[in-house]
Design a protein around this nucleic acid. Structure first.
Ligand code: FES
Ligand code: FES
Lengths: 145, 145
DNA sequence: ATATAAAAAGATAAAAAACTCTTTTATTTA
DNA sequence: TAAATAAAAGAGTTTTTTATCTTTTTATAT
């Protein structure tokens, strides 16, 4: 078990892939995305449908259709993707599973875990969806295997 | 979905509870543990069985039996509990779900995620099972709700 | 020795997450 | 306008995680 759900992992890889493949205004099909980020195609389709419904990515049907990400969405933080799929828990939940993380009634790990949680929050809020386009095009970063 | 599995969350709460309740050499029963850490009793029993089989906690059957944690185990890091139940992934896995986290072939989040992973590792390796006994007895920390 | 308390073990069940398949709808273009 | 294309939607399956129930084993006290 990783920090994020499979759903969320696929989604993050997919949005980074779509972002860097569609900066010229083109679209990219589900088949290519699934292949290039090494994810099960129909499952990924479901995930992208949801992101599309929520307006985090864009899609057009029909020939020459596919997914893309507009200027505005390219600037959104990765946190929006995570929240849409995995919810708020990662940003505020207790590390030991208590119903409410609390400063006045803390669990043993609270002090240390809070730092970690804040760092995750920081990372997801400062990272934008379009941030890695250049490095991905240059092949400096990978999204599969 | 939290950072750790439910199994692992219950286990961490349980070992901290057992640790601080048995420093006088006594034992504590599954029923009391489950109640006090707010976890499903039969499920927790399974988890503690496994930890006991692996030698991370101790148990005795029969009247006046129950679970306890010996001197040596009190000094073990919390990481041992996590590894026994959730495996190594949290310590070395890629944040975006790539099969192998790699310095030479990194995912977009690698640099930032590595810091977080290291901090989790640090926390789990420096925290010992017996570390919070005093604070738990004094009621400074909580393990339920 | 016997009764009893308590964990261990094994089998089962429910819920959630991960994944697949089929049909429908929208768009393009020929 | 018909054919082709590609995503959307809906229904369904499999696997994993979480949780429960029942029986067995073992240690202890009497
Ligand atoms: S109470 Fe557990 S992390 Fe804050
Ligand atoms: S490659 Fe993804 S965290 Fe290292």
């Amino acid at each position: 078990m990783g920090v994020f759900s499979k759903t969320c992992e696929y989604a993050m890889r997919a949005v980074f892939y779509i972002a860097h493949r569609t900066i010229d205004g083109s679209r990219v099909g589900i088949k290519e995305i699934a292949e290039q980020i090494d994810s099960p195609e129909p499952f990924l389709a479901k995930i992208l449908q949801e992101l599309s419904r929520k307006g985090l990515i864009q899609s057009v049907k029909g020939p020459n259709g596919g997914f893309y990400i507009d200027e505005i969405c390219l600037k959104r933080p990765l946190a929006d993707i995570v929240t849409a799929l995995d919810g708020e828990e990662i940003f505020s939940g207790c590390g030991m599973g208590l119903a409410h993380c609390s400063e006045t009634n803390p669990c043993p790990l609270h002090k240390e875990f809070k730092k970690i949680r804040n760092q995750i929050t920081q990372m997801l809020h400062t990272t934008t969806i379009g941030q890695f386009n250049k490095d991905l095009l240059l092949g400096h970063l990978t999204l599969k295997k």
